[in-house]
C-alpha cells in the first residue's frame, strides 16, 4: 500500500467547513485544528481494530419501539389489543 498522504487539519477544516456551510473564523482555526488532530489520533486507535463485513454499527434502526408504538397505534381502534401487546413486550424484554 502506498504511504497515505499527511493529514493537515487546518487545511482539512477549511475545506470541510465549506462543504457543510460553516463559516470558520480565522481566530477559531488553531483550536479547531488542535481538536481535529486529537480526533485523528482517536481515529487511529479505532482503525487499528480489524473488522469484518459482518461487524455492524452499534445503532440499530427500530421500525417501531417493540410493541409499544404499535400498541399506541392500535389502542385507538381496539382498547383490548393495547394490554395484550404491552404484556408481550414486557415478557420479552424482562431481564434474566
Amino acid at each position: 500500500m502506498p504511504d497515505s498522504p499527511r493529514f493537515e487539519p487546518a487545511e482539512y477544516a477549511r475545506a470541510a467547513a465549506a462543504a457543510i456551510g460553516l463559516p470558520l473564523r480565522d481566530q477559531h482555526l488553531p483550536g479547531v485544528a488542535l481538536n481535529l488532530s486529537l480526533a485523528a489520533r482517536m481515529a487511529q486507535i479505532v482503525e487499528a481494530l480489524p473488522l469484518t463485513p459482518a461487524d455492524e454499527a452499534a445503532p440499530a434502526f427500530v421500525a417501531a419501539n417493540a410493541a409499544r408504538d404499535v400498541t399506541s397505534a392500535n389502542a385507538a381502534r381496539d382498547p383490548a389489543s393495547a394490554n395484550a401487546a404491552r404484556d408481550v413486550t414486557v415478557a420479552k424484554a424482562a431481564p434474566k
Binding site: 470541510a16 467547513a17 460553516l22 483550536g31 479547531v32 481535529l36
Partner: peptide, 12 residues
C-alpha cells in the same frame, strides 16, 4: 466547548 463542537461538526 466551541472549538470541540466546531471540529466535531467536521469529522470525516
Amino acid at each position: 466547548t466551541r472549538d470541540r463542537f466546531l471540529a466535531g461538526a467536521l469529522l470525516p
